[in-house]
């Protein structure tokens, strides 16, 4: 699924406008536990989380996740956004809750 489509489904705000939204993700993983990201999140996934500190982006970097979306209107901390930009990740936020975001992406056909 293209990032463009995810943005439209989740009505996202894109926080780093200099990255392209033409690329795509193969799967999605939703969690607030970073050890869970490290253990189970597939390379090239979209990561949905409410955890907004630097570690949300560090865990994405380690697992080679390029797209992070913060749910429930959560804004990443400045150091998280800065590191995400440095690693050329796409950083998004949505006002939808974790549950609602997951169900919308599931209905659109995105698998875990």
């Amino acid at each position: 699924m293209t990032i463009e489509k995810i943005i439209s489904i989740l009505d996202c705000k894109i926080l780093n406008l200099d990255v392209s939204t033409d690329s795509s993700v193969d799967s999605v993983y939703a969690t607030d536990l970073m050890s869970d990201v490290l253990a189970n999140c597939k390379k090239g996934s979209l990561l949905l989380t409410i955890l907004s500190n630097l570690q949300s982006v560090r865990a994405a970097e380690m697992t080679e996740v390029q797209v992070v979306c913060y749910v429930s209107g959560r804004q990443p901390k400045p150091e998280a956004l800065a590191h995400g930009k440095k690693k050329q990740m796409t950083i998004l936020t949505t006002d939808y809750s974790m549950y609602r975001a997951c169900s919308l992406l599931h209905d659109a056909g995105l698998k875990e």
Binding site: L33, A39, N53
Partner: peptide, 11 residues
């Protein structure tokens, strides 16, 4: 901070 779930050493 998103850690401390007893998964670290296993990971």
């Amino acid at each position: 901070l998103g850690f401390g779930a007893g998964m670290g050493l296993n990971n």
